[in-house]
Design a binder for these strands. Structure first.
Lengths: 314, 314
DNA sequence: TCAAAAGTGTTATCCTTACACCCATGT
DNA sequence: ACATGGGTGTAAGGATAACACTTTTGA
């Protein structure tokens, strides 16, 4: 009856640490220069740390000197081969993926790595200036011309994830989109992972920058989860400085969700949720009329500072 | 850089297998009679199984003879002590929790365990006949009279999870509710897990039936996830027989979500989503006018058989 | 005086909610 | 005939989407 007879494995923690500087969503990457970047990861040692999250905060503080705010578990990645490289033996590391948020101030202070814009790795996820041209010029043609035999639902998935139907509002489906591109062999990781993949070497796919191991998949999971969470929990404020203008808040939500929002409706939403309060101060360096500075209204009251911003797109 | 230096741990799989017979949501429990039931669990061996899900299906088929339909990972539970009992040494089993669905036919055919109604273990989650009386008569008084010092947000959480605010529609918050009850010492597991808990032995809490280890927490996670999923993916059909009446479908959604729905609105929702099609047959044994039998419209077309049923409560 | 960004009032539209009612069958 | 559950039309109310406009600053 006991599960203790399973073979010993090592368990790792891998974390997507997200910060927002201005209108650019960033994540903390390890590895500079030419090599494909990786997410911070470290072993989980239950003798030293009572829970995953405690272990996570400890190794992040030690390894990269960043203090984490909000953290949540994403998914546990255990596929065989997920941690192998080239011709290595397979150590089979099972990894518990986490999403963590940190404030813009921390994004400067990191060591042994740097924060990078996440849309460099997922250019098809940034719809703030409208539907990215690459979807129609590159992604859809290649997806539909993909040589390999796909499942019955393949066309349906392509349509839902990249088509121009009403479901295009699905900003949360970042992982599904990445997985579709991976399956169709359009990201570099697909070619790297499968030697037996008889993909034409003629045109390298290179949709977005690639990462080591399955870390881009973990990052896609993090993006999707964060975008979903925005809508029902006020997590956006964990990415904001203490005080902010309403436009800055809107730009922040737009940056994370990768969608443009309607100004008035966004304001109504924010005020309706009773989620911010005025500081009384003004921000004058915006270039036009000075903007009122607000702060997050975390102090309980009976106000529902627990809800998120159920944005509907522009 | 490598995570391979972490100490060896054993990894288990624990699964909440859900079925629906009539209007009763069930899960597969191991252990009959007096002992607290447990969820099926088994070791994960990466040498035999390439992924968690493959390993899961294998051990479930072998152990309890049930064929799984839909399966999805829930959460990985790794807190120290989660697998200890009474005075045991702590083997620290990390467990990857899964939700799996199976058809009503399978619910009869299981061996070495049986399917049990999940609301026996979460009576406060069944709102189909209105707000359960026990919330006002037992849960709220005890939560508010809880002796231990709680976090700053405690009252806020009580209000949000069990109060009568507008957020009461939060059927998905099953895990949060269970955790609140656990923290307040109102479920048997809380007393069992903490010897140092100076809880008055006078009145045993016993809110709902208890389970072994942290399996009730995993089940709560499964319930919440399934309820959420219903709203954006047509998973309900994985719990239905081939053909069903619209009322049966409505009762199924009501059973899972624990809420009563409005007949006409539910029908409009179903037809609007273009998610079912008529079989042409009728069900006559319902007691009144015969009902049309429908089936799930999985065949693609351009119809969006991918969406769920965004129900709003009665 | 003009550009640039903040901030607001108001309307059209759709979706949600809920009322009330009719239909087909078994007893 | 009537009880039982299946099945539908339609109107009220509220949330959403988008229009166009005014205000306040710096250059």
């Amino acid at each position: 009856m006991s599960a203790a007879s399973s073979p010993p494995l090592s368990i790792g923690l891998t974390v997507a640490i997200v910060a927002l500087v201005g209108e650019t969503p960033l994540f903390l990457a390890r590895g500079q220069g030419l090599a494909a970047p990786a997410l911070p990861y470290g072993p989980f040692d239950p003798l030293h740390h009572r829970t995953f999250e405690i272990g996570l905060r400890a190794f992040v503080a030690e390894q990269v000197g960043v203090t984490l705010g909000y953290a949540e578990q994403l998914y546990t990645f255990g596929d065989r081969g997920r941690h192998s490289r080239q011709g290595d033996a397979d150590p089979h590391v099972v990894s518990v993926g986490y999403l963590a948020l940190t404030r813009p101030e921390e994004a400067q202070a990191s060591v042994g790595g740097g924060f990078r814009p996440w849309y460099d790795f997922f250019p098809w996820e940034d719809w703030r200036s409208g539907r990215p041209a690459m979807i129609d010029s590159v992604i859809l043609p290649r997806l539909l011309a993909a040589p390999k035999p796909h499942g019955a639902r393949y066309i349906e998935r392509v349509q839902r994830l990249f088509g121009d139907g009403p479901d295009l509002a699905h900003d949360e489906a970042a992982l599904e989109r990445y997985e579709l591109l991976y399956e169709a062999g359009l990201v570099e990781e697909a070619a790297r992972d499968q030697r037996d993949n008889a993909m034409g070497d003629a045109q390298r796919p290179a949709l977005g920058r690639s990462m080591q191991f399955d870390h881009r998949r973990i990052l896609a999971t993090a993006i999707g989860r964060l975008r979903a969470k925005l809508k029902y929990r006020p997590v956006i404020f964990d990415l904001m400085p203490e005080a902010f203008t309403l436009t800055a808040l809107q730009r922040a939500v737009e940056a994370i969700s990768g969608r443009q929002l309607h100004k008035q409706n966004f304001r109504r939403l924010v005020f309706g949720a009773n989620i911010v309060e005025e500081t009384g101060r003004l921000e004058t360096s915006t270039g036009g009329r000075p903007a009122a500075l607000y702060r997050f209204r975390s102090q309980s009251g009976e106000a529902r500072a627990t809800s998120g911003l159920r944005v509907g797109w522009h």
